[in-house]
Nucleic acid binder design. Structure first.
Lengths: 213, 213, 213, 213
DNA sequence: CATGAATGAGAGTTCATTCAT
DNA sequence: GATGAATGAACTCTCATTCAT
């Protein structure tokens, strides 16, 4: 799916411009989506934000949806290693939670354009497409949670629901953070962490017998 | 595009209570949106799922977005009284949290069509437009939280973030509930409640000095 | 296939304009096709030759091919009755042949616009699409030939090939007639008739055992 | 559109006799035209059926029309010598006619791919472009007919119309032959020959005073 | 000469919206 | 109000053609 051009084999100018065109389209798309919202954006809007000719778009993507997914993938590809690193470094559950929220909110704060359509004044529909890459990110989190449970570090709760809760809190709190001016990534991370650290101990025992055993 | 199931139309032409065209459109829209997703749906798709003529649509709504908002409003209008009732009845913070999640998950479970595009197999973008009515629902929750804080029932946390967290958890857990088959509204409510009851005690003191200081 | 609007039920202005728009498109198409040739003609060319808006085209036809076929059908529908009448009136084989060629060449001569792309100087590809209506015309001719054979009026030749030959001669001679200035419909008819009257007697016995018997 | 069978490419890239790119394109075009019909075929379809790059096409041909004409010419160039040989060998009018039809139908039968779009089940428009080479073939036939008239071997009929009739019969009967399974080249030739031998005697005296007076 | 990505005109088509009936 | 065909702006996308490599 994610066919980021392999930068290891830099051969001639042709390959270079090819890769850079693809990136130019993705970059333009990021800005335009953030500006108009996914629904209102047209392929034309995207290429117009580029130096390229209209036909060129179709050498790289089949549709607006495909660029959007490439964008999501790209983002997921950038966030996931950070989260993974944090969690690997964690020596206990607290560090696991802190690290996850921390690096996510930092990312959001410093890379806002990824966060589409968080415009203060115009009300723009928020669109969410969970690409395989994004879902893989969720999955990774879930697996880590399951491991924590197996290691006794976490009580045996429903890992899916716990993962979903973390995702839900992360997204909504991040949205607040971007909407308001007075919430730092640190505030957000401390808030979310406290909520989860306290809450997790009290969770009911696993609700489902085991994922697709 | 545009292959909406007929479903033998939503409502007969001028049979039925007269002023119900508006409702017929909303009902059709609910089904069509759930089927095609917001983005892919056209006004034509909606009227086609009706016995009405295309022009008639515009006697009631200006655009697809407007119907979608009417839909959201309608939903909010149906959920909010339940939530409010639960919270009024609550005699302590636990009952407040339980009641809120409980009635929300019950609603979702029993009125799934509102929940657009939770199709198991086709991947459909999720679109979220927070209409005034929906925002008012959030606001109501936030105010209740603020009151709880003032009454000392809750520690002085950031009410916005707490509200956002409840919303995020509610949405994501509901999504899991609809996607999986083995999570009841009760499971979901108990999970979310435990998470919040435990977590809330540990929340950091208010991060913001006051809304719109 | 051929859905010529029923002119018997003239109800209101709406139906009228609807029918007349359809006809306007067909008429424009006839001229444009004759002018540019089928291949070079675009849907836009056709609507441009009309007072109608571009979208209107698609209320009536799905594509250029569909109008072309409507055109062919319309033509076939106009020629066939004449040919049929001639052949019914015929009291012997000679009259049968004469009548057929005669009325065909007359039609061509007096309704040239039907005859696409017979431009003297630009060389324009000739396109031929045999629509069901046109094929039905061929069929009709073939059946008449078969009957003639059964009645002993014609020797037992291969009716398909005989029909094909008449068609081939008719088309090519008509084309000559339109290309040159000095061949009248009468000349053409006398030529073709003589050829067939003389030739038919000598035809080999039926080559095929019977159509899909 | 554009789903041309690969057919494992027509020819290897620079293997094979070098100057054969032109031929590779023509060969690919022959197949693709036969498959999609002239109108539906694009230059891209043709080069895709080749191992060549798109730009290379333009080193050899200016457009799809030009390849098509090259194809027609190639065909004409292959048929004409056969027809000429037959006619030169002919010692009387009968042999002239027999030879002409015979070798034409043989050619068609054994080289069907030239005969575009004689697909049994999909209905594909037949396109005919009379290239100079093809017209020269017609011309040659006409001249032979005129000579026959001058030599008294044929009665003084209109040579144009006679030529046109032969062409029309040849094309239509060939089409039947390809469409049906039970007509051999021999059947076709005997049929056409009989028709003409018988008919020609009765033809009316020359209708036109002379070509391009 | 071959290559194949870039180009951009323009074809086909959709669809929100209007408006005469 | 209800109707549904007409409208035409605007979009998606294709494809012949060019041109740097």
């Amino acid at each position: 799916m994610s066919n980021v051009p392999d930068l290891t084999k830099i051969r001639g100018k042709r390959e270079e411009t090819k890769a850079s065109n693809r990136q130019a389209i993705i970059d333009a798309a990021r800005i335009v989506f953030a500006d108009l919202g996914y629904g209102a954006t047209t392929v034309r809007d995207i290429i117009r934000a580029t130096n390229l000719a209209s036909g060129t778009f179709y050498n790289y993507f089949k549709s607006k949806e495909e660029v959007f997914q490439a964008l999501q993938d790209e983002t997921a590809l950038r966030v996931r290693p950070r989260l993974r690193a944090e969690r690997i470094r964690a020596r206990n559950f607290e560090e696991f939670i802190v690290g996850t929220f921390r690096s996510y909110f930092d990312f959001v704060k410093n890379d806002q354009t990824t966060f589409i359509a968080v415009r203060r004044h115009r009300e723009i529909p928020r669109v969410r497409i969970d690409t395989p890459e994004v879902i893989a990110g969720f999955e990774e989190l879930r697996v880590d949670i399951e491991n924590a449970i197996e290691n006794g570090v976490l009580p045996p709760a429903d890992a899916d629901l716990l993962m979903a809760s973390m995702v839900g809190v992360a997204f909504e709190v991040a949205h607040q953070m971007l909407t308001r001016d007075d919430v730092t990534a640190d505030d957000a991370a401390r808030f979310a962490t406290a909520l989860f650290l306290g809450g997790v101990q009290a969770l009911p025992r696993k609700a489902k017998p085991g994922k697709k055993k």
